[in-house]
Design a protein around this nucleic acid. Sequence first.
DNA 1: GGGGCCGTCAAACGATCGTTTGTTGCAAAT
DNA 2: ATTTGCAACAAACGATCGTTTGACGGCCCC
Lengths: 221, 221
Amino acid sequence: MLKRSFEPACGRWMVPPVNSSGSTKERILGAAELLFAQRGFDGASLRQLTTAAGVNLAAVNYHFGSKDKLVEEVFRRRLDALNERRLAALAKIAGAPETTLENLLEAFIRPALDLSHDDSGALFMRVLARAFAEHDDTLRQFLSANYGHVMRQFTAEFARLLPQLSKEELYWRIDLVTGALTHAMSGFGMIQRKSDVSEHTHREQTAQHLIRFAVAGLSHP
Amino acid sequence: MLKRSFEPACGRWMVPPVNSSGSTKERILGAAELLFAQRGFDGASLRQLTTAAGVNLAAVNYHFGSKDKLVEEVFRRRLDALNERRLAALAKIAGAPETTLENLLEAFIRPALDLSHDDSGALFMRVLARAFAEHDDTLRQFLSANYGHVMRQFTAEFARLLPQLSKEELYWRIDLVTGALTHAMSGFGMIQRKSDVSEHTHREQTAQHLIRFAVAGLSHP
DNA sequence: GGGGCCGTCAAACGATCGTTTGTTGCAAAT
DNA sequence: ATTTGCAACAAACGATCGTTTGACGGCCCC
């Protein structure tokens, strides 16, 4: 079997330890983030999810309306925070004459790395990487409608700092940086965190490598 | 709904036009590639799949043993060809004193782009991007066991052409290039093929941008 | 001509899916 | 004290899942 993760010999599926803190809605969202990251949106069933959250099966439909609405809420909760931080960081440097490409990339990348800081935020980056790969047009429209203006503001600032690039050239490069970012954040690839460095240090290294790589890729002639 | 693609008002799910060419096994593999790319491994059911292929429901289990074995075969068929081409291209330049970083990246990237050339090979890149995002350890082991030696040979050649980089630094950068490659190939992002350029031209542009970006990112001090 | 494979088929299997229902406990409002 | 509304629960709904079964027809080989 290639895809589905393990299934224990006894019992049908893993029941992660019950998370008993917070309200019912929050416990569902937390468990959803974990299981969506591990097994995907289709792969994680509401029964696994509600068992992990320690709530009743019907609670998801009661509080969110449907499984799809739950998925939407998982996205909205994290992306609202992420894009707020991005815009706040951008606002501090936008238009300033002394702003460097490193500053701008920092503003773009750092909030994504910080998101991975708190307890389960790191899982969300995997959920996001999955969603990107799903390639769904509905997701595309959702992201564009809700967070498109953030990307537009950053692109405008990139254009200001890289005036030598044509619009098309700039789009291409930002696209490639986004790909490298998503890849690095989701943690697939050769580079794994070594056991002797802390999670925080590892994130810091990731950011450093990513920013240097992106600066070189963006600003080459 | 965020994720599942549309479902038509009449009838339960889309039934793509029947593909009536080739053997039963080949038709199943073709339809699997299409539906796995569109709906994911869990999302695409054997009933959708066999209907699209124009074969009986039981044919999958008869010819492949199980759905999971089918997934495995979808991967193996394309990756065998991809890595053969990569190794052939690498063999022509490995160790040669006049080899440039561009040559090496070309050998690495071009076969992936060429894979997208034939009929449905482009779909496979989406399947692959999905599988990367799934983050499954079983997949990781499958790739490492069957195609790890390819990555190792390329890494050795990268190390020869970039002697100034530490081993860790090199791994990081190759990882980021891989992320950009996967992202560009899977086609999520701002850049979409314009209707006035051919598929071939678009692939060529993708390769050019990607190689230039990667060279800059890899070789910066 | 008859026996053994092979590929295909409709039909069914049990399991699991997302969702709905009806009931219960409980606290605030009347 | 009674009513109202919310949240949680067990249980069931019909649909769909991956897989298995047994029968049917065509083909080659003895």
